[in-house]
């Protein structure tokens, strides 16, 4: 889901950088208020943890192995604003050091995976789990948080791809950037995430939350304050 350089037109990547800066500014302001001087080490370690989650290959029922993107579980564990910065930092390092995702597309990739995914996952979790103490409901909420968060993020990515042939074409009608129209990009991205990657993300999110709630419930941001 990392968009490489060359697929998005400047009309798309510049506004997405702008939108991302707004989210970063709000996130930094909020976290500065909450953490004060501890902000820098806290965010750095949150980002390192977010990177580490992707290092674990986990067997998925059905015989395959996969790793989570982590935006959902980070938002549930540490809060959505921490996830915005933590996942963004990971995406910047991945783009610059590992060539995963383009430099011009950092704004778009961070917007999709560090803003859309954490917020959709967090609010899906809050909405479904409510203030319930029922473990099964909480784990189902975590699964759906990961599943829906990743799928929505993939659909937003597909829309960014799909609008390129509408907004950037040569005089002879040739697409200048991502060539797939919305009618191709959205169904392809939605289906592969609805049927495979979303399930992996959901399973990993639920599995990790289950472990955290069983062993260290006090650290989970999204369920803090519930009696158990």
């Amino acid at each position: 889901m990392h968009i490489p350089d060359g697929y998005l037109s400047p009309q798309t990547y510049v506004p997405l950088y702008g939108a991302l800066f707004v989210f970063w500014a709000i996130a930094l302001k909020k976290l500065k208020r909450e953490l004060s001087a501890k902000q820098v080490p806290y965010l750095a370690m949150a980002a390192a943890f977010s990177f580490l989650i992707q290092m674990f290959n986990i067997p998925i029922p059905g015989g395959t192995t996969g790793h989570a993107v982590g935006g959902g579980i980070i938002a549930i564990l540490l809060g959505p604003w921490t996830a915005v910065i933590a996942v963004s930092v990971v995406l910047i390092i991945q783009a610059v050091v590992f060539g995963d995702g383009g430099i011009t597309a950092i704004g778009a990739n961070c917007f999709n995976m560090a803003v859309v995914m954490p917020f959709v996952s967090y609010w899906t979790f809050k909405l479904i789990s409510g203030r319930s103490e029922n473990k099964k409901r909480i784990y189902a909420a975590a699964f759906l948080a990961g599943y829906i968060g990743l799928t929505v993020s993939a659909i937003v990515t597909a829309i960014e791809f799909g609008i390129q042939p509408l907004i950037a074409v040569s005089p002879d009608g040739r697409p200048l950037y991502a060539p797939y129209p919305l009618s191709v990009a959205v169904p392809v991205m939605a289906l592969e995430h609805l049927l495979l990657f979303g399930i992996i993300e959901g399973v990993v999110t639920a599995m990790l939350l289950k472990y955290f709630i069983k062993h260290e419930p006090e650290v989970v941001f999204a369920v803090r304050g519930r009696e158990r």
């Binding site: 001087a37 501890k38 080490p41 806290y42 750095a44 370690m45 949150a46 390192a48 943890f49 580490l52 989650i53 674990f56 290959n57 986990i58 564990l77 599995m207 990790l208 289950k210 472990y211 955290f212 062993h215 260290e216 650290v219």
Partner: peptide, 22 residues
Amino acid sequence: QWASGRITFMFRKTQQRCEELF
């Protein structure tokens, strides 16, 4: 189960390192 345990351990380790760094 093993992977979940290790990820939780790494989470603790990053939090501990955060305190030490601070």
